[in-house]
Each structure stands twice: as structure tokens, then as C-alpha cells.
């Protein structure tokens, strides 16, 4: 099933600081939508409105209904979330972590059924992690833990996956593999991916559409080729930025500032 997301005039305020100042974004079902912008632009806050982790004004609709109308459990069946630095409890087995994804489908004091276990085995197999099932998750590498988080997301069977800079701590190769994996799973399962991404090149290469945030407002939204221009990025990041085409792939780099004006 495909489910889209609709942010409308979303405002988030921490104390007296307005972090989001009326953000409106439409995210098409089954698409990969990148949320970009400098640190403090409000990317994480925007994502957190979808999971009920911050109070907001305006409306956030998921699959046509306001997220506030869902119970936690109902919402968890629709929206899965991977934070920037997930806590991987020391000593917990890989399989048991994936099993947490089944939580919304169990009664408060209930236990997993055989079919829940089977779904988790399938999720591990999809991420090529079957052999890791009994491993202590604190022994996994950075890339492996990201795959583990994705396995948990698959076990959760949510239509929408929210990734808050989930690949930020990975090396170039691991990041690329995880992004490819997300894309494959998204296509196979028809999931909508909403991801805050720091790496502009990765965003340009993987996202269907992107929204560029600056100080709590949307300054550009659309296909990466239209939004990620040298001029706009230069304004937002206050940096000299070059958008280069390398064999059909977009590469976005910032230049070391010399005494040259841009």
C-alpha cells in the first residue's frame, strides 16, 4: 500500500525559539523525499512531527488523515522511524532487536506469535543478515547496525519510513550501500521514504524530490535537479558550492573559501 505525507503550515516552537515557521510540503506515495538544509534548519523537528515527538501547530497528514487522530499503536503501524544515533542496547541479540518492530502488533501484555517470528526472519533475510541473528548488536559495525535498523523497520511493516540522517556516521562506501538498500526495499515494498540527509550528493542521486529548509522555512522544493542549484545552495549554506555532472551523476561539493567572491 502506498501512503503519502502532507505537511501544511507546520510550526514548531521550542521555548521562544521558532524552529519551523509554517512549512508546507507534499510527499507523494512511494517516493523518496529528501529534507535538506544546514544544521539548525529544522529538519529533525519536521520529521519528529510525524512521530508525535514534538508539539506543533498546523497539520501533518499521513495517508489522508491527521497523525494526531492515530493512537500510538496505529501510528506505529504506518510510520517507522530511525533516529540519527539509535541506541543499540548492549547484549541484545540482533534477532531480538528486529523483533521490537513487531511491538505495535502485540497487545500491551501480549507475546509474539509464530508469524511474528517468521516476519522477522524474512526481514533479516532481506537484509542479508540471517547469520547475524544471534550476535550481540554492540559487536556490529556502523554499516551493519544501519542494516539492522532497516530490518527492524521492515518487521514493523510501516508504509512510511522516516530516516533522520540515518547514514551520517557511515563511511562513503557504507553510506552508498545503505542508500542503495533503502532504494531497493522502497521499490520492492512501495514504501514512502522521508529522509533528512546531510550529504547533498547522496540526496541528488537517490531522492525523487527534495525540500531545502533554511531557518525554519522551505526555500525550495521539487526534483533535485531543480532545487539543488549552485545559487540557491550557496545562499542557504553561505558557501561556494559547485554542482558538477560526472558521467550523468550529480556531484555537489563546497569549495574552500579564498579571497574570491563567488
Amino acid at each position: 500500500m502506498n501512503t503519502g505525507v502532507e505537511f501544511s503550515e507546520v510550526e514548531v516552537t521550542y521555548g521562544s525559539h521558532r524552529v519551523l515557521k509554517g512549512v508546507s510540503i507534499d510527499i507523494a506515495p512511494g517516493s523518496w523525499h529528501g529534507i535538506l538544509g544546514p544544521n539548525g534548519a529544522g529538519k529533525s523537528s519536521l520529521l519528529k512531527t510525524m512521530i508525535g515527538a514534538v508539539p506543533y501547530r498546523g497539520s501533518v497528514h499521513v495517508g489522508g488523515a491527521s497523525v494526531e487522530t492515530f493512537s500510538r499503536r496505529e501510528r506505529a503501524k504506518i510510520v517507522a522511524y530511525v533516529p540519527q544515533r539509535p541506541i543499540y542496547p548492549q547484549g541484545m541479540a540482533v534477532f531480538d532487536y528486529v523483533l521490537l518492530g513487531r511491538t505495535p502488533y502485540l497487545g500491551t501484555l501480549g507475546a509474539e506469535t509464530e508469524s511474528d517470528l517468521a516476519l522477522c526472519w524474512t526481514a533479516l533475510a532481506d537484509l542479508d543478515m540471517t547469520d547475524f541473528a544471534e550476535r550481540d548488536i554492540s559487536t556490529l559495525s556502523g554499516g551493519e547496525t544501519q542494516r539492522l535498523s532497516l530490518a527492524r523497520v521492515l518487521a514493523q511493516q510501516a508504509d512510511i519510513v522516516v530516516l533522520d540522517e540515518a547514514t551520517a556516521s557511515l563511511d562513503v562506501a557504507a553510506q552508498h550501500q545503505v542508500m542503495e538498500l533503502i532504494d531497493t526495499l522502497r521499490t520492492a515494498r512501495g514504501m514512502t521514504v522521508v529522509a533528512a540527509i546531510h550529504d547533498l550528493t547522496a540526496a541528488a542521486q537517490f531522492c525523487d524530490r527534495v525540500s531545502l529548509l533554511d531557518s525554519g522555512t522551505v526555500v525550495g522544493s521539487g526534483p533535485p535537479g531543480e532545487v539543488l542549484t549552485e545559487e540557491l545552495l550557496g545562499d542557504v549554506f553561505e558557501q561556494s558550492i559547485r554542482v558538477i555532472d560526472v558521467d550523468g551523476s550529480t556531484v555537489i561539493v563546497s569549495l574552500r573559501s579564498q579571497e574570491v567572491s563567488k
Binding site: I51, A53, S71, A76, I87
Partner: peptide, 11 residues
């Protein structure tokens, strides 16, 4: 797994 993530798992 922490309060935020636990919250997104429906508890």
C-alpha cells in the same frame, strides 16, 4: 532503545 524510538514502536 530509548524513549523516542520506543514511542515510535507504539508504546
Amino acid at each position: 532503545v530509548g524513549d523516542t524510538e520506543a514511542g515510535t514502536l507504539g508504546v
